[in-house]
Simulated scan of single mutants.
Amino acid sequence: MKRRSNLIEVDGDNQDSFEQILKANLSKIYKQSEMYKNTAWYRSIVDAEKSCLKEDKIKKIHYKFDDDKEMVEEYNVDTQVLLRRAWKVKGKLGGDGKWVVEIGDPIPEATPTIEVADIVESKDQPIVTRRNTRVNLEWRIRNLPYPIETYSISANNDERCIIVRTTNKKYFKKLQVPELDRLGLQLEQGNIQSSHQFQTLIIMYKKPQPLLDMEKEWFEELKKVKPIKDMPSDCKTQ
């Protein structure tokens, strides 16, 4: 029995053409993966004045932007995961203002401010907190006792948010996704997963590749910011 060879012979000209196409495609993929560098968000954090404080396995970065806004980030040095991001918001009555948490647990206040002194939050009300892992953006909504089949969770690109509602019409919430907005990325329904335990609804959104690429590179960039001994006192308390 004769054996037939399936090898395809490629002459010199065709091989050069194939290599050129391959290089062009790889270059296109590389440029797409770094499109985040052209966003206003990336340019703003690059240009921001930065200082660093390292405590054990936690690295804290304080940013001061050109528009006088301030931001603090906390990273786990071992996992390279962002644990907390908070923005300094000026108070309505002036003064230094307070820190508003975007990612991580809320910052406990020793004494209520004048602005919130008259507002008492019920312990039974649903409370939303943000988490961040290496591969997912997470929201945890506590005090939701309904079973998992009660919840409808949908990506809404018209309103640029994830909408959570219950079939019994007892809960409705719009969850903003600033990480995607800053990079100009669309929400994908297929990236959403959820679970429910201990009266807590956990919503996970799989990070798209451009966000993963940016986070990886930015952590490397932050290594260039040398830790200092002294940092603004309000940053140390975050």
Score class of each variant (00 low, 15 high):
199 Q>K: 13
192 I>D: 02
202 I>R: 09
180 L>W: 00
199 Q>P: 03
177 V>H: 04
162 I>D: 01
202 I>C: 14
158 D>T: 08
198 F>C: 11
201 L>T: 03
196 H>L: 04
176 Q>F: 13
172 F>D: 12
180 L>E: 01
170 K>H: 10
178 P>G: 09
156 N>I: 07
194 S>F: 07
156 N>R: 06
186 Q>C: 13
156 N>W: 09
182 R>S: 13
173 K>H: 15
187 L>Q: 00
168 N>W: 04
161 C>R: 04
160 R>K: 14
184 G>A: 11
193 Q>C: 07
186 Q>D: 15
184 G>K: 07
192 I>K: 00
181 D>I: 03
188 E>G: 06
157 N>S: 10
198 F>S: 13
172 F>L: 12
188 E>A: 12
171 Y>S: 05
191 N>Y: 07
195 S>P: 03
190 G>Y: 00
168 N>K: 13
160 R>V: 10
157 N>H: 06
164 V>L: 11
161 C>L: 07
202 I>S: 15
185 L>M: 11
165 R>V: 12
176 Q>S: 15
185 L>P: 00
167 T>H: 14
173 K>I: 11
160 R>Q: 15
160 R>G: 09
177 V>M: 10
164 V>Y: 00
158 D>H: 07
163 I>T: 14
199 Q>L: 09
202 I>F: 14
187 L>H: 01
178 P>Y: 03
202 I>D: 13
158 D>K: 06
161 C>H: 06
203 I>E: 02
160 R>F: 11
202 I>L: 13
179 E>C: 06
155 A>E: 03
171 Y>T: 06
200 T>L: 04
198 F>H: 14
162 I>Y: 01
176 Q>P: 04
191 N>M: 04
158 D>C: 05
174 K>L: 10
165 R>G: 11
203 I>Q: 02
157 N>I: 07
176 Q>W: 06
164 V>E: 04
159 E>K: 09
200 T>D: 12
186 Q>R: 11
197 Q>F: 10
166 T>Y: 00
164 V>D: 02
183 L>I: 03
157 N>K: 05
193 Q>Y: 12
185 L>C: 06
178 P>R: 07
164 V>W: 00
172 F>T: 09
199 Q>R: 12
170 K>S: 13
203 I>K: 02
162 I>S: 00
155 A>L: 06
161 C>Q: 08
169 K>L: 14
155 A>G: 06
198 F>R: 12
181 D>M: 09
196 H>R: 02
191 N>Q: 10
172 F>S: 13
181 D>K: 08
185 L>G: 03
179 E>Q: 11
201 L>K: 00
194 S>H: 11
157 N>Y: 07
196 H>I: 01
197 Q>M: 11
170 K>F: 09
199 Q>Y: 12
175 L>S: 06
190 G>A: 11
194 S>V: 02
156 N>E: 14
172 F>K: 10
197 Q>C: 12
180 L>S: 01
155 A>Y: 02
171 Y>F: 15
171 Y>K: 02
198 F>D: 15
193 Q>R: 10
198 F>A: 13
192 I>P: 02
185 L>F: 06
192 I>T: 05
169 K>E: 15
182 R>W: 10
196 H>P: 01
179 E>V: 01
190 G>N: 15
178 P>V: 09
189 Q>K: 04
176 Q>V: 11
184 G>C: 10
184 G>N: 10
202 I>T: 15
175 L>I: 06
200 T>P: 01
166 T>P: 00
158 D>N: 11
166 T>K: 00
160 R>Y: 14
163 I>D: 07
172 F>M: 11
